[in-house]
Amino acid sequence: MNPPIPLAEAPSLFSVDGLVGLVFLIMVAITIIGAIIACNSERLVRSVAGLIVCFVGVAGVYYFLNSPFVAMMQILIYVGAVAVTISFAIMLAAPEEKMKLGSSSPLVGPFGLGTAALITGGFSVLALRTEWPVMTKINDGSVKNIGLQLLTNFSMVFELVSIVLLIAIIGALVIARVRRES
């Protein structure tokens, strides 16, 4: 078993490190609260609002991790484009009344809780026991360098992302096709 990661001494709140840590915790809290709103609200539009809060929190975490480019792309694409598209679809299609949730089987709750606990526990153990390699900053984060890295060292990631998009397009076509035929 690997030794646990040695934690630095907790910095005092009013030092630079302390304030940075506080900002990080705020961003994480925003992300989690947004996710909870997105999953639990009864109105779909409020779910979208929660999703946006969540996206902004994630962008903050990216910014904290020294990648402002990714943070800004997160806001531009997810908040500016994806969330607007989702809410357009909801407003044009969905009924405005509150969704009526049917009563589910009594076994769903405990099983759901068990699965969630198992996954959370597994990830926590994984995160704490792995010896994380400390990544050095690859470059200054300028657009040119990001482009070069994406098309040379990380071209595999680039290709995989485009496959994900391809799958999404095919999925959308399949769903549209089923509706049209029936």
């Binding site: 402002p68 800004m72 531009l76 607007v84 984060g141 657009v143």
Partner: peptide
């Protein structure tokens, strides 16, 4: 360093 991007990112939140 990503000033242009930042301004357009926040402008897109206006919608």
């Amino acid at each position: 360093d990503v000033g242009v991007l930042m301004i357009f990112a926040f402008a897109s939140m206006g919608g």
